[in-house]
Design a protein around this nucleic acid. Structure first.
Length: 364
RNA sequence: GGACGGGUGGCCGAGCGGUUAAUGGCAGCAGGCUGUAAACCUGCCGCUCCUUGCGAGCUACGGAGGUUCGAAUCCUCCCCCGUCCA
């Protein structure tokens, strides 16, 4: 028995079959991939956007005037926008946290902008996001229990404020708002947090603050401690994970949605994911390799191009490399999730999980 | 034929008596990347050896000599390259 489940999420921009992997499109684009391929070849049902980045450029009011984010970027399917909570972590030198919110100094020009639980809801409503995220504090690892508790409690207060504000909204009734469970690497804090957030009766819940440098086993342990406390009839979104072989692990722990920059970023950096593990296409050993990246992959890249050609494109710094590599890596991730869903429906998910564990067991 | 300016590690290019196996950049090689400040970042990058160390030896700044305790750096001759003048 595992906690794996297959479900459906209904949005104004389509039905999403879960478990689902969501490609990251921070600045209203999944880097290197055209929307045509995202919907066609890749058949992604939902992608991410980012509040912090899109607020700074081009600005949420501009996006509203352009008819919303979907229309602006010509993406007819669902969009989930992160709140800027991750930038609290990644841009830690450019921000200051207070009870009121987060004061960011733009990485683009240094301008100060205060992000509050309420303002981030408004910005995401202006985007017309299908799923908006509450402003949270993504805590670095390691953190003391005391710090993690204080941070978690503030995240809960922010979530309540965001929710109160969200429920008074007059526009965009199609936007759902997900709170985010924090609590560092402490199961008691995770449980406390989840218990308090559940009171908001949200349409879905996220688990955040993972993949911030902790051991993999810990991220999974935190997830495992949290999911049972979240309502069974609402989607559960584990933010920012993971490696391909970890996806089934999260699904087994009751996670329905995941996103990660690894497939897209690593693709651009010459690191491809295959059914047999990693393939660093930039390595000299592929210079004259006529084979495809992954013989088991049916993506456009694998069907048409050799490792030698891809390595050449990487070496030559050609734009096409990013596109072909990203297309492949995202196909790999999305295929894993489609296959995972299929096995859940067929009742063979435990076998798939066992197979993945056997193949990717930590060496020695 | 003459006058200048040059020849530096795979390439470009600093250095212009010792702290220089020689700054930088490129190319090359390897590694990292987890709600994207990322088409990015880090390390290695003359050869050999080993007790892998701010280790030892060797070779190296066009060539051959010379000055000097010490030369990529100064001198002499030679060979190339560029620009200009005949």
């Amino acid at each position: 028995m595992t906690g794996a489940r297959a479900g459906l999420i209904h949005t104004a921009h389509g039905v999403i079959e879960t478990p689902v992997f969501m490609p990251v499109g921070t600045q209203a684009t999944v880097k290197g991939v055209m929307q045509r391929d995202l919907a066609g070849e890749l058949d992604a049902k939902i992608i991410l956007g980012n509040t912090y980045h899109l607020f700074l450029r081009p600005g949420h009011e501009l996006i509203r005037r352009m008819g919303g984010l979907h229309r602006f970027m010509s993406w007819p399917r669902a969009i989930l926008t992160d709140s800027g909570g991750f930038q609290v972590f990644s841009l830690n030198t450019l921000r200051k946290i207070s009870e009121e919110g987060v004061l960011f100094h733009s990485h683009l020009n240094g301008d100060a902008h205060l992000f509050t639980p309420e303002s981030t809801v408004d910005v995401q409503l202006a985007f017309g996001s299908d799923i908006a995220m509450v402003l949270d504090e993504c805590l670095p690892y390691p953190a003391s229990h005391e710090d993690a508790r204080a941070s978690m409690e503030r995240t809960v207060r922010w979530a309540r404020k965001a929710y109160t504000h969200y429920e008074r909204r007059e526009t965009s009734l199609h936007t759902a708002l997900f709170p985010i469970v924090q609590g560092g690497m402490y199961t008691d804090l995770r449980r406390d947090c989840a218990a308090q957030l559940v009171e908001l009766n949200a349409d879905g819940y996220a688990i955040g603050g993972l993949s911030v440098g902790e051991p993999r086993a810990l991220s999974q342990e935190m997830t495992e401690a949290t999911t049972p406390l979240l309502p069974a009839d609402r989607p559960r979104y584990c933010m920012g994970v993971g490696m391909p072989e970890e996806l089934p692990e999260y699904v087994a722990r009751g996670v329905d949605m995941m996103d990660c920059v690894l497939p897209s970023r690593n693709a651009r950096n010459g690191y491809l994911f295959t059914t047999h593990g990693k393939l660093v296409i930039k390595q000299a050993q592929y210079k004259e390799d006529e084979g495809p990246v992954d013989a088991h992959c049916g993506c456009y890249t694998c069907l048409n191009f050799s490792r030698a050609y891809l390595r050449h494109l990487y070496q030559a710094n050609e734009i096409l490399f990013s596109t072909l590599a990203t297309l492949h890596n995202l196909t790999h991730y999305l295929d894993i999730m489609r296959q995972t869903r299929q096995t859940i429906l067929l009742g063979t998910f435990p076998a798939l999980l066992a197979r993945v564990r056997a193949e990717f067991a930590p060496e020695q």
